[in-house]
Computed example of a mutant assay.
Amino acid sequence: MLATIERIELLENAESLAKMVLESDIAEQYQICLYKMQHNKETQRKIKQFVGLKELYEEVQRFGKYHPDYKKVMMQIREYKREMDLDPFVAEFKVAENELQDLLDQISRLVGNSVSEHIKVPSGNPFFDNGHGSGCGTGGSCGCG
C-alpha cells in the first residue's frame, strides 16, 4: 500500500477531527464526570456492591427459578442496581456518556453519508438507524433500508 498525498491528507484530517472531538465541551464534560465517579468512595462502594452481586446473579440465572436463592438474589440485584443508578455521580456520568455517544454517532453518519447515502453506519441510536444506511447491508437494493 503506497502512501499517496491524498491518503496522507485523509489521515491528517481524521486526526484533526479526533482532536476536535477530544477538545470538545462534550468530551471534557465526559472526562470530568468519569473522574468524579471514579474518585467518589460512596459511588465506588455502590458499584462494587452491584458488581459483586452480579456474579451471584449470573449463577442464579443458569438455574432460573429453581435455584434456592432465586427470589432473594433477584430482589437484591434490582435494589443494588437502583441504588447505583440513582447515585448522582453515576447518573451524571451516564448523561455525559450518552451525549458523547450521540456526537460520535452524528459524526459517523456524516462521514458515511459523505461517501454514499447507502453506507451502513452502525449506531446504538434508533434515530440514526432510520432511512438509508440501515438494513441488511446491500446498499438499499433489497428495499429494507
Rank of each mutant, 00 (worst) to 15 (best):
Q29V: 11
S24G: 00
A18S: 09
I26Q: 08
K48I: 05
E15K: 14
L53P: 01
L11P: 03
V21Q: 06
G52P: 04
Q49N: 14
C33N: 07
Q29L: 06
L34H: 05
A18Q: 06
A27G: 04
D25P: 15
E6W: 09
K41Q: 13
N40I: 03
H39F: 02
I26A: 01
V51C: 03
R7P: 04
D25F: 01
Q44V: 00
K46Q: 08
A27N: 01
V51P: 05
E42S: 10
N40L: 11
E9Y: 11
Y35I: 12
D25Y: 03
E42K: 10
I5A: 07
E6G: 05
E6Y: 06
I32S: 15
Q44N: 14
I32P: 15
R45F: 12
Q31C: 09
Q44R: 15
V21P: 00
I5C: 09
K46S: 03
N13K: 12
V21C: 04
M37S: 10
Q29G: 13
Y35T: 07
I47V: 07
A18E: 10
E6C: 01
I47P: 05
Q31K: 14
A18H: 07
L56T: 02
S16L: 12
L17N: 02
L10R: 09
A27W: 00
K36R: 11
L56Y: 02
E9G: 02
E23Q: 12
L10C: 14
K48N: 09
F50V: 00
L34F: 09
Q49S: 05
Q44I: 03
G52M: 02
F50H: 01
R45V: 03
Y57G: 03
E42V: 06
C33L: 06
Y30K: 05
L34N: 13
L10H: 12
S16F: 13
I47W: 06
E58R: 10
T43W: 03
V51G: 01
V51I: 05
N13V: 03
Y35H: 15
Q38I: 11
L10A: 14
E9C: 13
F50I: 00
E6L: 11
E42R: 08
L53Q: 10
E58S: 10
